[in-house]
């Protein structure tokens, strides 16, 4: 039975994260605090957007991590399908709710920012639409995980869904760009930190991005540890029943 399982060792993962998780958590807290405080209180107001622009320090990092979380899930799913590495599958499972939350934060902060800037909470801009679609993909992925009882079957099926979903999510993004052209010129509503942005904004923004990245890593590590323990508990119950 070793052949199937020799590639991964949850125990080693637990031992490593025993010290790694606190380190990453503290780093995430420090970097994010510095970034947000710097961004909120020590940057000048934008000449056109006033202080509302400062929500960018929450909005952009969250949106970035919403996409990165999905990419991480895709990589972890591939590792699981190819190497049968349990920790990988559990990490993908742990990342999904975090990605979903990041997507929600991105959408909500976007709406809060959009209201004073464009006078509307929501517009069917390609970028906004893509994020809403991403939200649907996260929901489907999580729903499939929660519907399946056997953990290995769940890992396999969600991994394939993640792969197929990634292709269709990408297609949907191009579809949204294409679809919007006919309706209105959405490009002027772009949320990107444009080229106008100078280093007074860029430096704290990059700090916040790093901070959100660290938060993501810390939460995924913590979530994976929880999943590993849940998995172990399940295995122990099964063992009891067998004995």
């Amino acid at each position: 039975m070793a052949s199937l399982w020799e590639y991964a060792n949850p125990l080693k993962f637990m031992r490593t994260t025993d010290w790694l998780l606190p380190v990453v958590s503290v780093a995430a807290l420090v970097v994010t605090s510095i970034g947000l405080i710097w961004g909120f209180f020590f940057t000048p107001d934008d000449f056109r957007q006033g202080s509302t622009v400062k929500i960018v320090f929450l909005h952009v990092p969250a949106a970035m991590m919403a996409i990165n979380a999905w990419v991480m899930m895709l990589v972890a799913s591939l590792v699981w399908l190819i190497r049968r590495h349990h920790v990988s599958a559990l990490a993908a499972k742990a990342a999904a709710p975090i990605g979903l939350t990041m997507t929600l934060i991105g959408l909500i902060t976007g709406a809060v920012w959009g209201q004073p800037m464009w006078g509307t909470w929501w517009a069917w801009d390609p970028r906004l639409t893509s994020f809403l679609i991403l939200l649907l993909f996260y929901l489907g992925y999580l729903a499939l995980w929660s519907a399946i009882e056997d953990p290995d079957t769940g890992a396999d099926l969600t991994a394939v869904l993640c792969l197929v979903g990634s292709v269709f999510a990408l297609l949907s993004r191009y579809a949204a760009i294409f679809w919007n052209q006919g309706l209105h010129q959405g490009a002027s509503l772009s949320l990107a930190p444009g080229t106008r942005m100078d280093w007074a904004y860029k430096a704290p923004l990059y700090t916040c991005m790093l901070g959100f990245g660290l938060i993501f890593v810390a939460l995924v590590l913590a979530g994976t540890r929880t999943e590993i323990r849940a998995r172990r508990m399940k295995a122990l119950v099964a063992r009891e029943r067998m004995a």
């Binding site: 039975m1 399982w5 949850p10 998995r231 295995a235 122990l236 063992r239 067998m242």
Partner: peptide, 15 residues
């Protein structure tokens, strides 16, 4: 046979 757990640890079978 049930795998015997090692020194308080567990392997990829989570046992």
């Amino acid at each position: 046979r049930l795998p015997t757990p090692g020194d308080g640890g567990f392997d990829e079978a989570f046992l």
